[in-house]
Design a protein around this nucleic acid. Structure first.
Length: 597
RNA sequence: GGGGACGUGGUGCAGCGGUUAGCACGCCGGCCUGUCAAGCCGGAGGUCGCGGGUUCAAAUCCCGUCGUUCCCGCCA
């Protein structure tokens, strides 16, 4: 071993011991007669002291040392001089007096400072990721990730789950996200697909009798990036047999609660996760993954506003559409410019305009271009319903139900940001349940599944499939946190008759089903147990738990927004021979680019 | 595919029509025996992303383009 201790380990009880440390030079402070070196590894920092009067040899080496040199130091652990202790360092009561100093490896001047979080350009961080990884921030984040995943494995192992690996090279299905494809050398013109999730495979494991399965599974989706989306990401994939919905929710909630309490830097807002229906989520918060760190509810005022002389409201209510409102505390003094920013946001989300009222903080007069269309009694009824007071701003939306949701949901989110309601030091988890089995709007003349084809209806709703499919609730659930979807799953259909019924409703022919899911349908004929499961987005969970705004910060080697690895320069061109092996000829843009390079 | 923001020594930024493009950190050299973002003195380092245009004059204004990022579309 090139060390006897780590750089975060030595304390006063080690004083007098002869030890060897190895690590990176964080900083060197040359006082002339004495040189201090902060030696760093991922466990901490220790101050090294070189006294030029005591060892000319070590002093000469210390003179050459620069930041990020890798050095080995042997010396005696000593108490710091009285008054020279550093309370900001874990090892601040001691220092290592050097007997022997060796440079294990030199370093070029790094393009960024390691001991300061510099806000460097993202390209720089990603190009020199191995240097970025030396920073405290990334080391802390990857440590949280490791601890959390270890917690998950231990928890599920204690509950009789088996971790099973499933193929990375699998089969493309046209549904869902765009697949990453891998050409086959052995089968010209055919392709594997990288899994978007192990969904089918875990259901087949249930048929195989592995009644409690999990996997820390890498997944791939070839879609455009976001702060919470990378081309490859990690799911905790879970599937169980002989369970009902609440068995899964209870288990996963206990797992997540324990994991957060044990490993997260950001604490839970509350221990018990609320279970809210999809209908409540979209009607009250305008989103199927509402941010529950704050309330700011959408309130239906159709009955009052429909009576007003404002044509838009009256006509919409007469047509059966809602008028809903959002009260924004303290924003009654918004300027014309600020209001028009909000109107722009409303329009982006489908609104034709933005109606608003503001209550004067002094004289309680109600301003806003629609005020004149309301009687005094109507205004009183409105403010009472909304619990709106002096200084408040009231934002309205009236349109189809879907547009009202989208508009006020977006405004709720925006106003929470502006009002500083998004506490970054709390995690507000919740379950969203009772999703409709089918989307509200049909695709052509067919129903569209809101999750996927294998999602089971709630058992009591099965008769409704024949009479009112839109009223059928699914045994589907999402785990949400701070406005993010961090997980989702369902109880699956294991009954062939029911599966066929659903396929007919969504316009999926037997022939189509056969080519895409033949292996699934056949498997289900050999004694598929009742089963269901969930998948949690590990990267999103880790980002939330580390208080990070982007999942790049919890991945060791992420890609940038263009799905490029700027460190390794991937994807990259390959030699013609490789293409020939794969029976691939470049065409179009790809061919032009190769010719011009 | 679309919209917003950003692009200036190694790094982070200021300058936003008119001197030799400025500041901090870093880097190089010197001084210094108790520092810990050490201090002091001196120094090097820039095609202002790239291309075109407007102007007597462009880092600065306009157009295009490339890169980064956030968002919309997309993500069963």
């Amino acid at each position: 071993m090139l060390r006897t201790h780590t750089c975060g380990e030595l304390r006063t009880e080690h004083i007098g011991q002869h030890v060897t440390l190895s690590g990176w030079v964080n900083r060197r402070r040359d006082m002339g007669g004495v040189i201090f070196i902060d030696l760093r590894d991922r466990y901490g920092k220790t101050q090294i002291v070189v006294d030029t009067g005591e060892s000319a040899e070590s002093a000469a080496i210390a003179e050459q040392i620069r930041p990020e040199y890798v050095v080995q130091v042997t010396g005696t652990v000593s108490a710091r001089l009285p008054g020279q202790e550093n309370p900001n360092m874990d090892t601040g009561d001691i220092e290592l007096k050097v007997n022997d100093l060796t440079i294990l490896n030199a370093s070029k001047t790094p393009p960024m400072l390691i001991d300061r979080d510099g806000g460097e350009d993202e390209t720089l961080r990603l190009k020199y990721r191995y240097l970025d990884l030396r920073k405290e921030r990334m080391q802390r984040n990857l440590r949280i990730r490791h601890k959390a995943i270890k917690y998950i494995r231990d928890y599920l192992d204690n509950n009789e789950f088996l971790e099973v690996e499933t193929p990375i090279l699998f089969k493309s299905t046209p549904e869902g996200a765009r697949d990453y494809l891998v050409p086959s050398r052995v089968h010209p013109g055919k392709f594997y697909a990288l899994p978007q999730s192990p969904q089918q495979l875990k259901q087949l494991l249930m048929v195989g009798g592995y009644d409690r399965y999990f996997q820390i599974a890498r997944c791939f989706r070839d879609e455009d990036q976001r702060a919470d989306r990378q081309p490859e990401f990690t799911q905790l994939d879970v599937e169980m047999s002989f369970v009902e919905r609440d068995d899964i929710l209870d288990l996963i909630e206990d797992l997540v609660r324990g994991m957060v309490n044990a490993t997260s830097t950001v604490p839970l807002a509350y221990e018990q996760f609320p279970r809210i229906s999809y209908t409540e989520a979209v009607e009250k918060y305008g989103s199927d993954r509402p941010d529950l760190r704050y309330d700011l509810p959408l309130v239906d005022v159709s009955d009052i506003a429909g009576q007003s002389a404002f044509g838009v409201f009256a006509n919409n209510v007469a047509a059966g559409n809602p008028v809903k409102a959002l009260v924004v505390p303290g924003c009654g003094d918004y300027s014309r410019k600020q209001i028009s920013e909000l109107e722009e946001l409303a329009k982006v989300n489908g609104a034709k305009g933005l109606a608003w009222l503001a209550i004067d903080p002094e004289n309680e007069q109600i301003k806003g271009f629609i005020a004149k269309f309301f009687t005094v009694q109507q205004l009183i009824a409105l403010t009472e319903r909304l619990n709106a007071g002096p200084g408040d701003l009231i934002l309205f939306s009236s349109d189809t139900r879907l547009v009202v949701r989208a508009v006020l949901g977006a405004l709720r989110d925006e106003m929470a940001t502006r009002l500083g309601y998004k506490d970054t030091n709390t995690l507000a988890f919740a379950w969203v349940i009772d999703f409709p089995l089918f989307e509200e709007e049909k695709e052509g003349d067919h129903y569209a599944p809101s999750h996927h084809m294998f999602t089971s209806p709630m058992p009591g709703d099965i008769p409704l499939l024949k009479t009112d499919p839109h009223a059928v609730k699914a045994a589907q659930y999402d785990l949400i946190c701070n406005g993010y979807e961090v997980g989702g799953g369902s109880i699956r259909i294991h009954n062939r008759q029911l599966q066929r019924q659903i396929m007919e409703l969504i316009g999926f022919s037997l022939a189509e089903a056969e080519t895409q899911f033949g292996h699934m349908l056949e498997a289900f004929e050999y004694g598929a147990p009742p089963h269901g499961g969930i998948a949690l987005g590990i990267d999103r969970l880790m980002a939330l738990m580390a208080g990070e705004p982007n999942i790049r910060e919890v991945m060791a080697f992420p890609k940038n927004q263009n799905a490029t690895d700027v460190m390794a320069d991937a994807p990259s061109a390959v030699v013609q021979r490789q293409l020939d092996d794969l029976h691939i000829a470049l065409a179009g843009k790809a061919l032009e680019r190769v010719k011009s390079s």
